[in-house]
Nucleic acid binder design. Structure first.
Lengths: 349, 349
DNA sequence: ACAGTAGATGTAATCGATTACAAGAATTCG
DNA sequence: CGAATTCTTGTAATCGATTACATCTACTGT
């Protein structure tokens, strides 16, 4: 009856007051003993620390944020689809941020205005000290226009057109795509198809441009019947649909550049089901080098994006920009190198 | 020079005071107009709302949390490895939590004590209203023992031994494994190997027990040379290593039950490289039904765990338990059904 | 020995909301 | 019509930390 200790949420958490009382000092001293250890006597620090140990005190986050105007949290906005691609990024982000004592709030925008507005509000409520938008899908919401001045924002994978207010960490999608298609051409391919990504994405446009560049450089005319657009997302289903396009063609390509690994994998799978073998009958190149690319059969030749490193660098940059109040580090644009990873899915002809 | 508006972080955010002043009411009324709209006149509500619109006011989260003793945030703890398995779970969690206005803080424990301690501190700092531990890896940290009384905690995928204080959402791993192995036996297999998961995990033990059950039920003696333990994690590499065990064997099994899809895929891939074909030469069954299972070649026969649904249910339960202060809903244990998904990787002999 | 300075600590204001309590206005009812 | 009740609103305390400012003590150098 008297045992309150078991499931009593009413056991009132211990506050700085309790610690101060026990240590026989003021709350100011407790606060200082924690934040600026050099500013208190060895003896008092000891007393405070021991009081803290005894009471099991943990400073209240809300109170601290309210006064210090910093929450030590960042918001990571993800599109919410094609997630396994983003997994290493999120992993890297969490690692760096939590190491520095920052919490990572994740938000999936799912390309829904409602959710974007929701997260804009989170930012405006001062709930985070910084924002990382993963993928070019920067919320177009009006709510967002005021936001960049409140906290630093960084973009990973694709910069937004008119924004020098953001740090950007991306790769040269156009050049990378051109390299891939150039590799196919060097292997003797002339009839090369391209499965594009989702219509409205920057990556899609850039990679398509790179595809065109490489063809042009080799003096190959662009054949619109080999550009398989509007495939949907960077996912298996897009590859499936593209396979239908392939089978419907009389004059089939000898190589296909898919705008993403998952598209490539879906495509290859559907081809197999239809009795077409990769790379025997047709070569396929992907983009991203997700963890499945190397384990697939055939192992996928693809462009590696350094996702983990992008995450790490972006996190470190954001950390820097968050720490310096006022005279802040200016936003940067870091373009990371891609790497052509040659495996089994493209063959010489 | 006078344009402070551009990159001025000093543009002091608008507070409830500003709104109150503009609307000609007290801050209490503004607060009520927002939280309990029925408790103010239509007219004042209008005035307040219009003042809010005009100023672009968003309530400060820290201040609100401090006073209301609720942060509307939950912590989701993930192991931090084998992430694509957890992706749908995290997705489901984010969906239902953000729909209810809760933020999702992710933490990867990476089986490191330091990180567990870190997140225990986050909880104790009152930074979250609830916790979801994904996977049985409940932090063994002493810091954690005090925590469950502070906020409700739920477990997904595996319950912790002595904890009736947590809600648990899992599947009957043992029965599911037995079903899979039973399926192999029904297909005529007698020599069946098992690639286990990581040594210390509950799932590993349960699935192994199910494997034993099925063998026993069929009167097949357990052959220790067919139990491939200590494979590491639920990942490709474990499958690779298991393939070496397979090749090293004289009397090879005709079927292999892998404790996870990724293990199965890694295993199959290594087998292929060694010239062994699945399911022609050996049948393979997986566990989980991750998104790659169906797209692989051969499409993997596996036990489907309803990951999305588990996430959703767990989130809803936690939401319920968080909302009711004091007379709280008791923790539940929900055991969800698995489903044997028959594809191509197991063949009749 | 004494003014001046540096160092340690305490007092109290503050951050921006929510909410208990009080007071005034409007409504209901006998 | 007056008392009782309900509705609306305002005043001010409060949540738990941080920190500017004040105070007091203990040195330093001349």
């Amino acid at each position: 009856m008297t045992t309150t200790e078991d499931h009593a949420p009413s056991a009132r958490a211990v506050t700085i007051q309790d610690v101060a009382r026990l240590a026989g000092v003021s709350t100011a001293t407790v606060s200082r003993a924690l934040a600026l250890p050099d500013r208190v006597t060895e003896a008092t620090r000891e007393a405070v620390l021991s009081a803290i140990r005894e009471t099991g005190y943990t400073p209240n986050a809300a109170a601290r944020s309210l006064r210090a105007k910093s929450t030590r949290m960042v918001l990571v906005l993800l599109p919410g689809i094609g997630n396994s691609f983003f997994t290493p990024v999120l992993n890297a982000l969490e690692e760096v941020f939590s190491d520095q004592g920052y919490g990572v709030l994740v938000g999936y925008t799912r390309q829904s205005r409602r959710r974007e507005t929701h997260y804009a509000r989170v930012i405006r409520a001062g709930q985070v000290d910084g924002v990382l938008v993963v993928t070019g899908n920067v919320p177009r919401d009006e709510e967002f226009v005021a936001v960049p001045d409140q906290v630093p924002i960084s973009l990973i994978f694709a910069g937004i057109p008119g924004g020098a207010r953001f740090s950007v960490f991306d790769v040269d999608n156009r050049a990378a795509a051109a390299t891939m298609v150039g590799h196919m051409i060097a292997a003797g391919h002339r009839r090369i198809a391209h499965i594009t990504g989702p219509d409205n994405s920057i990556e899609t446009n850039e990679r398509f441009a790179g595809y065109c560049d490489a063809l042009a450089a080799a003096g190959i005319a662009l054949d619109e019947s080999l550009v398989w657009r509007g495939a949907g997302n960077f996912d298996f289903a897009s590859g499936d649909r593209a396979a239908a396009r392939y089978f419907a063609l009389e004059d089939r390509p000898t190589a296909v550049f898919a705008a993403a690994d998952e598209i490539a994998l879906g495509f290859i799978r559907s081809l197999k089901t239809g009795g077409v073998s990769v790379p025997r009958d047709v070569s396929v190149g992907g983009f991203d080098d997700t963890e499945y690319a190397i384990h697939y059969d055939p192992a996928l030749t693809t462009m590696r994006q350094p996702r983990t490193e992008m995450g790490r660098l972006a996190a470190e940059d954001l950390l820097r920009r968050m720490s310096e109040k006022g005279a802040s580090t200016p936003p940067t644009h870091v373009r990371l190198p891609c790497e052509l990873v040659i495996r089994e899915s493209i063959r010489q002809i």
